[in-house]
C-alpha cells in the first residue's frame, strides 16, 4: 500500500453543547493515501464538509485525532498550523466569495507563494505565470479582478492557488457544483491532469455520484456523520454493499435511456442530527432493517477487496435490496 498522507482516527465533531448539540461527525476513521483521489459522498447534512474542514484543521474536532504526513495536528494552535498550510490546501464551492474581489488574479495566485516561500518578487511573478498556464488561464487574465472572470475561470484560479505550494493534500469542497455543466468537465479534466502529473492526494467532496465515477479512485459514503461504506470507486458503484449506497445509486438515471431505472424508494425520515442514534443511523429508512440494527453500532465489515460497509446483514449476505 502507498504512504498514508492524512489520517482521521475516531474523529468526533459536535457543534454546541447539551441537548442542542449537533453531532456532525461520529467516530469517523479514514485514510488518505499518497496520490489518490478520495471521493466523499453524502447528502447535505451528512458531515462531508465538516470532515474536510477537520482534515485541514480549519475546525478543531471535539474528539479523535487528525494526522498529516505522520504529524498529529489535532491540537496544534493556528499559529503553528499556519506554516503547515503550505502542505495542505482547499478549493471552495463558491469561488466568487472565496477570492478577495479587490486583488488582481496575479496577486491572488502569488499569495500562497508570498506566504510560504522565499521567492522574490520577480520569481513569484514567473511562478504565478507558470501556474496560470498550468491551469489553462490566459496570461491576459492575470491582470484582471475576480469580477471580470467567469465561474469556471475563477475555480481555475482557486486550483492554481491550491497547487502553488505543492501540497501533499488538497481538499476540494464541491468544486464543480456551483458551475455550469459545460464548465464542469473542464475542471474535472484539469484535476485529472494534476493527479496524473503530481503525487498530490485529493479529497473530493460532492453529492454527485457521476462526478465521482470520473475522478475518484476510492469513495467513502457518509450518512449522518458516519462512514457507511468505503472502497474502490468501481466496486462501490457497481456492487454497493450498504443498503444506503444501493438506494443512493438507484436514484441516478442509467446512461441508457431504454434501460428502466430500478429506483429504490426510501420510506421514513432522516433522524435529526440532534438525536443520539443507537445502532445503525440508516435504520429509520432502511428497507432491510431488522432488530439487530437498532441495538449496536454496526461494525465495518469486508464486502470485497478493499471494500467495507457498516451493515450487519453483510454477515449472511442478505444486504442486497431486491429491486
Amino acid at each position: 500500500m502507498t504512504r498514508v498522507v492524512a489520517e482521521l482516527a475516531g474523529l468526533d465533531m459536535r457543534f454546541g453543547e447539551g441537548a442542542g448539540a449537533v453531532h456532525a461527525l461520529d467516530k469517523v476513521d479514514l485514510l488518505v493515501h499518497e496520490g489518490e483521489v478520495l471521493g466523499l459522498v453524502g447528502e447535505s447534512g451528512s458531515g462531508k464538509s465538516t470532515l474536510g474542514r477537520c482534515l485541514l484543521r480549519l475546525l478543531q474536532p471535539t474528539g479523535g485525532r487528525v494526522a498529516l504526513d505522520g504529524d498529529d495536528i489535532t491540537d496544534w494552535p493556528e499559529r503553528r498550523l499556519r506554516k503547515l498550510r503550505a502542505r495542505m490546501s482547499m478549493v471552495f464551492q463558491d469561488p466568487w466569495s472565496a477570492l478577495n474581489p479587490r486583488m488582481s488574479i496575479r496577486r491572488l495566485i502569488e499569495e500562497p507563494l508570498k506566504l510560504h516561500t522565499q521567492l522574490g518578487r520577480a520569481a513569484r511573478r514567473t511562478e504565478a505565470e507558470r501556474l496560470a498556464e498550468r491551469v489553462h488561464l490566459a496570461a491576459a487574465q492575470l491582470d484582471r479582478t475576480p469580477a471580470e472572470l467567469s465561474g469556471g475561470q475563477l475555480q481555475r484560479v482557486c486550483i492554481a492557488r491550491a497547487i502553488a505550494t505543492r501540497p501533499s493534500l488538497i481538499v476540494l469542497d464541491e468544486p464543480t457544483s456551483s458551475l455550469d455543466l459545460s464548465v464542469r468537465a473542464g475542471i474535472l479534466d484539469l484535476l485529472g491532469e494534476l493527479r496524473a502529473e503530481t503525487a498530490v492526494s485529493m479529497v473530493f467532496i460532492t453529492h454527485d455520484l457521476a462526478t465521482l465515477r470520473l475522478i475518484a479512485d476510492r469513495v467513502a459514503v457518509l450518512y449522518l456523520g458516519r462512514v457507511l461504506e468505503e472502497g474502490p470507486t468501481e466496486a462501490v458503484m457497481d456492487r454497493p454493499a450498504h443498503p444506503y449506497t444501493q438506494a443512493l445509486l438507484s436514484a441516478h438515471l442509467p446512461a441508457d435511456p431504454r434501460e428502466r431505472p430500478k429506483r429504490i424508494r426510501l420510506e421514513g425520515e432522516i433522524p435529526s442530527p440532534l438525536d443520539r442514534i443507537t445502532g445503525c443511523p440508516f435504520q429509520t429508512r432502511c428497507p432491510l432493517v431488522e432488530k439487530q440494527c437498532r441495538i449496536g453500532r454496526p461494525p465495518l465489515l469486508s464486502a470485497g477487496p478493499g471494500q467495507t460497509a457498516a451493515c450487519v446483514r453483510l454477515i449472511d449476505g442478505s444486504n442486497r435490496i431486491a429491486a
Binding site: 480549519l58 471552495f92 466569495s97 478577495n100
Partner: peptide, 17 residues
C-alpha cells in the same frame, strides 16, 4: 458568511493579514 475568511485562513494568512 461567505468563504473569504475561511479561504484566507486555509491559505495560511496570519490574522493581521
Amino acid at each position: 458568511s461567505g468563504s473569504l475568511v475561511e479561504c484566507a485562513v486555509a491559505t495560511g494568512n496570519p490574522v493581521w493579514r
